[in-house]
Amino acid sequence: MNGPRRITARISIRQKAALCSIALLAVLLIVWQAATCTSGPDASVKSPDDAEAVEYAMLMGKIPETGAASQSSSKVTGFPTPAQFAAEASRQLAHPFRDNGPNDKGFAIQLGYSLARVAAGYVIALAVAVPLGFLIGMSRLAFLTFNPFIQVLKPISPLAWMPIALYTIKSSSTSAIFVIFICSVWPMLINTVFGVAAVRRDWLNVARTLEVTPLRRALRVILPAAAPTIVTGMRISMGIAWLVIVAAEMLVGGTGIGYFLWNEWNNLSLANVLFSVLLIGLVGMALDLLFAQLQRKVTYVD
């Protein structure tokens, strides 16, 4: 009796939450609609009183005209209504792989560039952080040697490396990869160190009494024992890398979802800015889910 009732209670709370989420989304859309409908960006310049106001409006990039021209320009430059956004988004979604020169690429191509950069920087960081973390976690000498460097380098904003990277590496694309590397290396390194250092003594003693070789011990005992901690570090790193790539691409330009966003801002197409912001959020969520899956796979019940 108790069991099924508890299950129904859990299902109903899930359903309740889903309903609440949908309600919240509806409220947000209504607020959005209300906020964008009443106050158009060109409402203040609809009836210019004097030449000064006209000139001010022109300086702000708006042509103080009445009629159709004003209507069409507001559609491009103003904050879009949900309907306008939906139209723009469907236009983007219809051509995800279009490539009409550097300033008009489909969002899928841009996302591909960003993901490729993140993957490259991230894999290099993984290849450095895990072995180094093993070394530092297993040897007190290595820990004391590397610790001051880690403590100093860790709090540096990854974008602060950008000028140094651009100057030394020269290629802007490689610099972005370097920035991803430097920002994702620390959480992985530190978690690996802690994971390796915290492996239960009993398990190491078992390995010792079985005369297990150091390599086998590292791969068969320490790695699986520390895997949950390491994967947590990998998950944090991936989150940070995805945050940083957008900012880095805004700086270096050329390609990528960050550049796409900045380019649309320069086009004053807020609908597309909004579209890319949502896209960044969704991809970030997908990446996190991927790592949650991996985490579930390596976690063990003690």
């Binding site: 239960r200 009993d202 398990w203 003693n205 078992v206 010792r208 009494t209 079985l210 005369e211 005992v221 699986p224 024992a225 895997a227 390596v298 063990y300 019940v301 003690d302």
Partner: peptide, 20 residues
């Protein structure tokens, strides 16, 4: 000197690897 396969140990807290 040092552990050996000739001396097997059963540990107080079983010390099994929980992932295996």
């Amino acid at each position: 000197s040092g552990p050996s396969l000739d001396r097997g140990v059963v540990f107080q807290g079983h010390a099994l690897m929980p992932w295996l």
